[in-house]
C-alpha cells in the first residue's frame, strides 16, 4: 500500500513536471498584457526539484570553441595600438609611426593573419557636419595606406568613419579631445 502510494506520488510529481515546462509560455503572455505590474519570477526547476535522486555536478562550465576564438580575437584587438592625430589633420605624426609599425607586425602575425581589419577613424567634437566624418575617414585611409606599405594586404582592410560619434573621453578638455582624434581597430573573423 505504502509502495503504491509512493509510486502514485512520483507519478503525480512527474505529471506536474510535465505541466511546469509549459508554464513559462503562459506567463509570458501574462507579462505582455500587464506591463505595469512587476512580473513575478517564473520558477523553472519545480519539475526537476521533485525528482528523487542526488544531483551530480557537471564540473566546470566550459566555453565553446567559438567563444574561445572570439576571446582571442578580442585580446589581439586590445593589444593593437591606437593612432592619434593632430587637430584638423590626417597625416601620421612622427611620434605615431612606431605605433603603426607595431600594429603592422601584430596584424601580420600568425594569430591575426586570417582576420579582417576594420579601421575606424574618429574625430573630436569640434568639427561639424560632413567634414568631420570625411576627416575621420581620411585618418582611416592614411593608416590603411601605411599598413599596406608595411605589407598588410589591402583586401584584408575595411575602413569606416565614426566622425565625432564615438568618443572615448567626454570631458571638454584639451587632453580629452586629443584622445578622441584617433584611429582604432576592430578585428573580424
Amino acid at each position: 500500500m505504502k509502495k503504491s502510494l509512493f509510486i502514485a506520488a512520483v507519478a503525480a510529481a512527474l505529471l506536474m513536471s510535465g505541466c511546469s515546462q509549459k508554464k513559462p509560455e503562459v506567463d509570458m503572455t501574462k507579462q505582455e498584457t500587464t506591463e505595469t505590474t512587476a512580473p513575478a519570477a517564473t520558477e523553472v526547476d519545480t519539475g526537476v526539484n521533485s525528482v528523487v535522486g542526488t544531483e551530480e555536478s557537471a564540473g566546470e562550465i566550459t566555453t565553446l570553441p567559438e567563444d574561445e576564438r572570439m576571446a582571442k580575437i578580442k585580446e589581439l584587438e586590445a593589444s593593437a595600438k591606437k593612432i592619434y592625430f593632430d587637430f584638423d589633420k590626417y597625416n601620421i605624426r612622427p611620434d605615431q609611426e612606431p605605433r603603426v609599425d607595431e600594429d603592422a607586425q601584430l596584424f601580420a602575425s600568425d594569430a591575426a593573419k586570417d582576420l579582417t581589419i576594420k579601421i575606424e577613424g574618429n574625430c573630436d567634437e569640434w568639427g561639424t557636419d560632413e567634414y568631420n566624418y570625411a576627416l575621420g575617414l581620411r585618418r582611416a585611409k592614411t593608416v590603411r595606406d601605411a599598413l599596406a606599405i608595411k605589407g598588410i594586404e589591402e583586401s584584408r582592410m575595411v575602413m569606416v568613419s565614426y566622425g565625432e560619434s564615438n568618443p572615448v573621453c567626454t570631458e571638454h578638455t584639451r587632453e580629452c579631445w586629443a584622445k578622441n582624434r584617433r584611429v582604432e581597430f576592430e578585428l573580424l573573423p
Binding site: E130, Y133, A134, L137, R138, A140, K141, R144, V158, M159, V160, S161
Partner: peptide
C-alpha cells in the same frame, strides 16, 4: 565604402548629391 551622405536633393526630388568614399 567608408562614407555615404545625402547632402542635397534636386527640386524635383529625382537627383541626389551624395558624398561617397569608395576606397576611402
Amino acid at each position: 565604402d567608408g562614407m555615404l551622405v545625402c547632402s542635397d536633393v534636386s527640386r524635383d526630388g529625382k537627383k541626389l548629391l551624395l558624398t561617397m568614399a569608395p576606397d576611402g
